[in-house]
Structures are given as C-alpha cells and as structure tokens.
Design a protein around this nucleic acid. Structure first.
Lengths: 127, 127
DNA sequence: CTGAATCCCCAGAGATACTG
DNA sequence: CAGTATCTCTGGGGATTCAG
C-alpha cells in the first residue's frame, strides 16, 4: 500500500483523502488487530501469537516492525535469557485508540450482519 | 483478506477481534476512500475516477462490487443512453460514517507526522 | 459512460528451518 | 523466547482491449 506512492506524483492523492493517510498506518493486514490488543496494555510476542494463532510468525514480525517504524508502537527489549520483548502503544499510537475502539464497537454490533462466508449469490438486479 | 477465513476454523479468530470484522468491510485497498467520498452524497463512476486518478478502472469496479455485496453501498442504474450509474451509502453503510469521519480527522491532524516516503533508516536501537 | 474480459507480473504471504 | 533466512507460490492488482 505504501509502495504504491513511490514514484507517483498525482497531485491530489492523499491530499484529497486524509482517510488514506490513516489507512496507511492502520490498514495493514493485521495492524488493527494488533493495535486493538495493545489498548489493554503491553504485550509480548508470543502473547499475540496465542491471541491470533492464524497470524504467522513472519507476518506478525513484519506488521510489528511497520507499526514501530511509523512510531505507533514501542518495542522494549529486555536483555535477559531467555529474551523478552514487550510491545506497547506510544503517545502517538494512543491517538489512534478512538478509531480502533470505534471499529471494535462496530464489529461487535454488526458481526451478524456481515456475511463471512463466500458469497455465491451474484444477483445483478436491474431496474 | 476474506479468503483467509475459508476453511480455517481457529476458534477465536474474529470472535476475539471485532476489529477484524470491521476491517473486512472497510479495509480493502480503496474502500475507505470510496466510503469517505460517499458521505457527501451519491457519486457516479467517473466522479470517483476524477477524485482519485490513481485508482484503476478495474480496482474501482472491484471495490465497489465488494462494498455493494456487503450491503454497504447501493448501486442505482438508470437505463439511459449513455448509461448512468449512481453509488450511494445504504442505511447499513451509514453506520460506518463515524468511523470514516474519525479516520478523516486523524488523517488531517497527523498527516505531517506520518512519513510518506520510503524509510531507509532501520535503527535497531538496543538498550 | 460504465463497465467486463484477458493477459501478465511481481510483491505479499505461507511454510519451513535455523539462530542469538 | 523472539525472532531471521530462504524458498515458494498464489492471487492482488496493473495495462490493455472489448462490450452494451
């Protein structure tokens, strides 16, 4: 999503769309989920894995790195054996909390309205 | 994003994460942008293209179809020549407005804090 | 004008194995 | 424990052409 911007010079790209700016930060495949879990407090690497077994190690690492790079989360490394790393929201990251929480609320309320299955029906109803 | 769910039976997948449900609906590459523009009122196909020249015809069509399939937007076809199609938010779609507007606000406020360029610095600062 | 249909490529993502 | 390092491969997405 970010690479799309490289080399392009459309004048009113993200200028016309602040929404895009936001989605650049939280729109990654698992970023919303990660941020959501961080609202409760700091989490360790394997805690995320337990919370979402379907996220692969690789993807979890990548998404965490991008969030860190964007200044949204902080990565605290404890020089212990065995190693221990804790992720937490930064001040900047906290500004995203309202959005994440609103997304959570919407998800809870409309979970049943959203059809999760593959849509087989393609009703093109003309009128 | 949606296909990921097919065939998987992780117990606490989107159950643990309502955020994921929401992102399934608005997390598509251009969906946030599209929804944002629809808040002002109905839009025609080419209006979107003018608003965001960087979206290809193909992607615009695909994203619109998915949003329609999710019941978020309505596609009104006028049987005229030349053809005319108008997209608008459904009742259901309007429930997403607060989220989109919040994302817009955040984008406006933090546009400058978000580094749009490619990050070349990879400072892994241990402590 | 509003798409649908193809072709095609490569980056995103999975699987697996290895490491400090 | 918390990651890298490769390898692989799919499907997301661009470019182009056709259609009602």
């Amino acid at each position: 999503m970010r690479t799309r911007k490289i080399g392009l010079d459309y004048p009113s790209n993200s200028e016309a769309c602040p929404v895009e700016t936001t989605l650049d930060v939280i729109g990654g495949k698992w970023k919303g989920v990660i941020l959501f879990h961080l609202i409760d407090g700091k989490k360790r690497f394997n805690e995320f894995r337990k919370l979402h077994p379907c996220i692969t190690q690789r993807m979890l690492t990548l998404q965490l790195r991008e969030l860190e790079r964007d200044g949204v989360i902080h990565r605290e490394i404890y020089k212990e054996v065995p190693p221990k790393v804790e992720y937490s929201l930064t001040e900047f990251g906290r500004t995203l909390e309202p959005i994440i929480l609103l997304m959570k609320d919407w998800g809870v309320q409309h979970k049943n309205s959203v059809n999760k299955e593959v849509r087989t029906t393609r009703n093109e109803e003309l009128k």
